[in-house]
Design a protein around this nucleic acid. Structure first.
Lengths: 192, 192
DNA sequence: ATTTAGCAATTGAACGTTCATTCGGTTGCA
DNA sequence: TGCAACCGAATGAACGTTCAATTGCTAAAT
């Protein structure tokens, strides 16, 4: 990542992200997180009360950054254009930031995610903007009136699945595959 | 291999599956796997050379069982019917066997999966039947001629995404949501 | 039919390592 | 002067793995 790290907290985040991507939750000791971030082990505990909290905070950090990025969209575009644009932005972002993608995927598949749900902390939920975006399409009659989670399964499910294929190396990152997916899901959800 | 051996091995598999589902890869010690399977810790090492090998074998075991189940389909059905049937079977199987689903998800998102890819062991790849099924639809002109991985993103991506929503408790396991998803992706992939 | 040899299966305490966390001390800045 | 930031060796618990000992089973030998 080419970003100039402004503080130690972000250095710790970036270090954790890379190590977890490489060795998984289990295989990344605090000592190595510290080493890669050029801080002492104890320093991490100045910012985070435990390893679990570090991982929870990192998840929030990743999700906020991702959401801020993908929903930064020109409101002058037509709904169809926005539908395509946001999907492509999400895929681009994840492919350019593989560590973020794999960390989020690992997190969602792990028991950590239940911890967050138990807390019932609204700031953990990042679905608000997605919900608004789909509601906009439904209310204006452009896309079919189906439930939010149905649309998420189709829109986000295909995007993450596609990113997995590409980062696994199964298929090349080529425009054709993306266009096909987008055309297919758009044909499926549009009203007519 | 006699019956007794299979029983112990399967008991270890089932125990591992449940514990990993509950505590994650990192949070499940061999001692607990043994306890839940009613065997001694050392016994596990009679069947598996290490914890990593146990997890790799368990992954193969889960994937084989899942594939055997979902592709057990009446060939007399029309292609569209099979398309709907297999998708529903996959979703049903995962919802009825949540530990299998979450284990596979965790595995795919973890660095373990790269280990398997490095081995280049064909027995690890379970995509053959899926590929044949899509080819059947393309050759007969029923579904659009797009790449295998595009179809996987749409077909499997939406299925796993839907299972996640349901097992997270975001949406009820009701017929409506499924029908909507299937109708949308079928509208998208069918020819013209 | 009984004995016996030998190997497979099983046990769980012990071992050595790794790791998250702590803490007493140091640095740097306001 | 005071306080936050920072350090890293020390601590103790947890964990994967080993191993010497025990049991159970099978089949050949008597």
């Amino acid at each position: 990542m080419n970003v100039q790290l402004l503080n130690k907290k972000e250095a710790i985040f970036e270090s954790t992200l890379k190590l977890i991507n490489e060795y998984g939750f289990h295989g990344t000791p605090m000592s190595q997180i510290a080493a890669r971030a050029n801080v002492a082990t104890g320093t991490i505990y100045h910012y985070f009360s435990s390893k679990d909290e570090l991982i929870l905070e990192l998840f929030k950090y990743c999700r906020e950054r991702t959401n801020d990025h993908i929903f930064n969209v020109d409101q002058a575009l037509s709904y169809k254009e926005k539908f395509f644009f946001i999907w492509n932005r999400l895929v681009d972002y994840y492919i350019a930031n593989k560590e973020v993608f794999w960390f989020i995927e690992q997190f969602y598949s792990s028991p950590y995610y239940e911890l967050i749900q138990q807390k019932k902390n609204p700031s953990y939920y990042g679905a608000d903007r997605m919900r608004l975006f789909f509601e906009e399409g439904i209310k204006s009659g452009i896309i079919r009136d189906v439930s939010f989670y149905t649309l998420v399964s189709i829109y986000i499910g295909t995007a993450t699945s596609h990113v997995k294929m590409v980062t696994y190396g199964f298929c090349k990152m080529q425009a054709k595959g993306r266009e096909d997916i987008l055309e297919i899901i758009w044909n499926g959800v549009k009203n007519q």
